[in-house]
Simulated assay, not measured.
Amino acid sequence: MMTDEPRLDAKIIDYWGPVCDSGRHYPPHPGDTCDEADEWIRLRDQILADVMRQLWAQFTEPAMNRTRLAGTAFAAAAADPIPQPPDQPDVQRALDILGPHLAWDHRYRA
């Protein structure tokens, strides 16, 4: 059946090089039939598509979550946490422990 519609399933090989006996595959596939080569190509393309889909989801999901939460009460919780300074009692305790050692150093004498 001939139509004026362009064919979307046509493959164009725009380079010169050795092809298989049927002319369908570059490079040739000695020892395999064209159907086996087509199956391998289909499996390879499926694996590559799955990997790309997973990578895309891995890197875009955090950004999409932040975008969905922007302007809501949960946006601050989704942001990177702001590091808090240590509690003052912990700092004072550390200075109390180091006090006798620092007393010997002239830079720390009051």
Results as ranks from 00 to 15, higher is better:
His25Gly: 06
His25Tyr: 15
Tyr26Gln: 13
Tyr26Thr: 15
Pro27Gln: 15
Pro27Tyr: 14
Pro28His: 08
His29Ala: 12
His29Asp: 02
His29Tyr: 06
Pro30Phe: 01
Pro30Thr: 01
Asp32Phe: 06
Thr33Pro: 03
Thr33Phe: 02
Cys34Lys: 07
Asp35Gln: 12
Asp35Thr: 10
Glu36Val: 08
Glu36Cys: 04
Glu36Ala: 14
Glu36His: 05
Asp38Gln: 05
Glu39Trp: 02
Glu39Asn: 05
Trp40Val: 12
Ile41Thr: 10
Arg42Glu: 02
Leu43Asp: 06
Arg44Pro: 03
Asp45Val: 00
Asp45Glu: 12
Gln46Phe: 07
Gln46Asn: 12
Ile47Glu: 08
Ile47His: 03
Leu48Arg: 13
Ala49Gly: 06
Asp50Thr: 14
Asp50Phe: 08
Val51Ile: 15
Val51Ala: 04
Arg53Val: 01
Arg53Gly: 02
Arg53Lys: 06
Gln54Cys: 04
Leu55Phe: 06
Leu55Tyr: 04
Trp56Asn: 11
Trp56Asp: 10
Ala57Ser: 12
Gln58Ala: 15
Gln58Cys: 10
Thr60Glu: 11
Thr60Asp: 01
Glu61Met: 12
Pro62Arg: 08
Ala63Asn: 03
Met64Asp: 07
Met64Ser: 07
Asn65Gly: 00
Arg68Asn: 09
Arg68Gln: 09
Leu69Ile: 01
Ala70Asp: 08
Ala70Asn: 02
Ala70Lys: 03
Thr72Asn: 08
Ala73Cys: 02
Phe74Gln: 08
Phe74Val: 00
Ala75Trp: 03
Ala75Gly: 04
Ala76Glu: 13
Ala76Ser: 11
Ala76His: 07
Ala77Lys: 11
Ala77Met: 10
Ala79Phe: 02
Pro81Asn: 05
Pro83Thr: 00
Pro83Ala: 06
Gln84Ile: 07
Pro85Asp: 06
Pro86Trp: 09
Gln88Phe: 11
Asp90Trp: 05
Asp90Asn: 10
Val91Gln: 07
